[in-house]
Amino acid sequence: MKKLLTPAVISLALLLTACGSGDYAATEIPQKPQPSESSAPPPAPQRDCVDPLQSYTPEGTMPPPGAMPPGTYMAKIKARGRLIAGVSADSLNLGSRNPVTGVIEGFDIDMIKAVARAIFGTDKGTVELRVISSPQRIPVLQKEQVDIVARNMTINCNRWKDIAFSAEYYRSGQKTLVPLDSTAKSLDDLDGKTICAPAGSTSLDNLKDKNPQAIPVTADTDTGCLALFQSGKAYGITGDDTVLAGDVAQDPYARVLPERFSDEPYGLGMSLKHPEFVRFVNQVLAQIKADGTWMASYTKWLQPALGKLASPPPSLYGRTPGT
């Protein structure tokens, strides 16, 4: 079946140069960013990770917006006047640039805006979104080029060695996208086929484990994988169901196989150097899960493609810095 190229292929080039507009700025971090200097002490040595979903336990009551405790990382962000976040600009419904307004929007962006409101009292003019690729998610946090990353990043023990995570804010799962006329029923039916996954992602690792006979190809972005698929350079794409749902919305000649072969718990990434900021973000997540803000965002961005949810994922605590 012949495929028609959709605007996603064209938008791949545009995303590299477009600048966001609206209530918050959007910039792009170069592929090889320079490290920033920091006077913060190095993170404590890591011990065994028992449960990767355990994050730092919130302490005390959440401070009122605009009154961040002196000496905390939140106070530093408040004094700067903006929260700097690393995000995607091409993951439809999670973090993607609206073609009409130019503003980056989606479920992940709503999580960032909630943190900004808790610090400043508003998300208007207080958020700077920096567009990053999958491989950049951890380095930009280690070099403190951003305060927080919201880019459909899976929480796991290996990543806890390099960065800190919030409590889980969404539970995704890995699936596979194939041509509409494919007879495949699962990834096991794709021996010898080229399958794209973002570089530096758990999706790429899971692909190699699930079917070593598939031929992995990579791209730095989700749109990059979609472009390879639409140009015939990749037979399929594997990744989080949230991302693949956005791909199908852009390509009528694609479908997602029903097989789900992993759990992908998303967390907001932060530096290991600022555990008080992680605790604060966990307070924010607990609040928006309880007051309906989280569910409203899910209903708007993800429910049409992925169906209704009874409740947000639970928050697990108990981790201490250095573990």
Rank of each mutant, 00 (worst) to 15 (best):
M1K: 09
L4E: 10
L5A: 01
A8K: 07
V9L: 12
L16E: 09
G20L: 06
G22R: 12
Y24Q: 08
Y24V: 04
A25H: 09
A25D: 09
P35M: 04
S36G: 10
S38E: 14
A40D: 15
C49H: 03
C49R: 02
L53N: 00
Q54T: 03
Q54N: 00
T57Q: 13
G60Y: 02
M62A: 13
P63F: 04
P63K: 06
A67S: 14
P70G: 03
P70T: 06
P70H: 05
T72L: 14
M74G: 15
R80T: 15
G81T: 13
L83K: 11
I84A: 07
S88Q: 04
S88A: 13
L92W: 13
G95T: 10
P99D: 08
P99C: 07
P99Q: 03
D110Y: 03
K113F: 11
K113Y: 11
V115K: 06
V115F: 11
A116R: 14
R117G: 09
A118T: 09
T122S: 15
K124M: 15
K124P: 15
G125I: 12
G125D: 11
T126Q: 15
S134A: 14
P135D: 06
P135V: 09
Q136H: 10
Q136T: 10
I138S: 03
V140L: 10
L141P: 02
V149R: 04
I155G: 02
C157W: 11
R159T: 05
W160F: 01
S172I: 07
S172P: 02
Q174K: 14
Q174N: 14
K175R: 14
P179Y: 03
D181I: 07
T183M: 04
T183S: 11
A184C: 06
S186D: 04
D188T: 04
D188N: 11
D188E: 06
D189S: 03
D189Q: 06
K193E: 13
T194Y: 15
T194D: 15
I195N: 04
A199N: 08
S201E: 03
L204I: 01
L204N: 02
L207R: 00
Q213A: 09
V217F: 08
V217I: 14
D220K: 11
T221E: 06
G224F: 12
G224M: 15
L226E: 15
L228Y: 11
L228Q: 12
K233I: 04
T238M: 00
G239E: 00
D240I: 01
L244E: 01
V248H: 01
Q250I: 01
D251M: 04
Y253Q: 00
A254D: 00
R255D: 00
R255E: 02
P258E: 05
E259K: 05
R260I: 05
D263L: 07
P265R: 11
K273I: 11
H274G: 11
P275S: 14
F277V: 14
F277Y: 15
N282Y: 02
N282V: 03
N282H: 03
L285H: 01
A286W: 02
M295A: 12
A296C: 07
A296V: 07
S297N: 02
Y298H: 09
T299L: 09
L302S: 10
G307P: 05
K308Q: 13
A310N: 14
G318P: 12
G322F: 07
T323V: 09
T323F: 07
T323N: 11
